[in-house]
Amino acid sequence: MVTVSDAESTLKTIRSLMERATIYRTLSAPTSLCAGIFSLVLSLFVWLSFCQSTRFFIFLWLALAIVLSALNTLLLKRDARRRGEPFVSSGMKLALRGIIPPILAGASVTLFQLLGEPILTELIPLWMLFYGLTLLSTQEFAPSSIRKLGAAFIAAGLLTGLLASLWRLEGNSHFAALSMGLTFGLLHILYGLLTWSSKETSNGTGVNEGL
């Protein structure tokens, strides 16, 4: 004989277990913090006009993106090993299917700009939009913080593009530095700090204790 509250508790635990089992985090908190700090340093470098060339600006940010992607991959691999799961898990396969199209689109736009005369005030909002879309492409199984970060990048991309167009800021390196620092810098640091010690980063479901 059991009570109705036992049945409710069992159903609640089943729901929680199913939700947590389908979550896959594509961006680790340490990577996000590193991304934020390096982005701020790079933005400061541009702000102080150590970076005069538009192409050099693009290559610097591409290099940072590649380094941080490698770091994120290493950390995801380490986490998977710690949990005793394969690195290329079903969660990762699902994530890759979602993130590859927006990443390819962003890379293509960058390449097209590099082939011609790149305009930073066009490229930067597009980077924000494609990055936001990349994060949102995992929203079906990502924790809510990833969805919020993706939405923030989409909003920032739209706002940056609008401001750059209205104020005619083509070639303004200070605007480029400020917009990159505020988004890829501060947003990543905020995300990293908020998720570092939150429950979302905990692994395992603790089912044995829960049920």
């Binding site: 089992a21 389908t22 949990r83």
Partner: peptide
């Protein structure tokens, strides 16, 4: 519950999820 949440689960992933 876990098996109902995805099409299939490797043994190691099940073990890791359930402790």
């Amino acid at each position: 519950t876990l098996l109902a949440s995805r099409a299939e689960w490797p043994f190691q992933e099940l073990k890791a999820q359930l402790n």
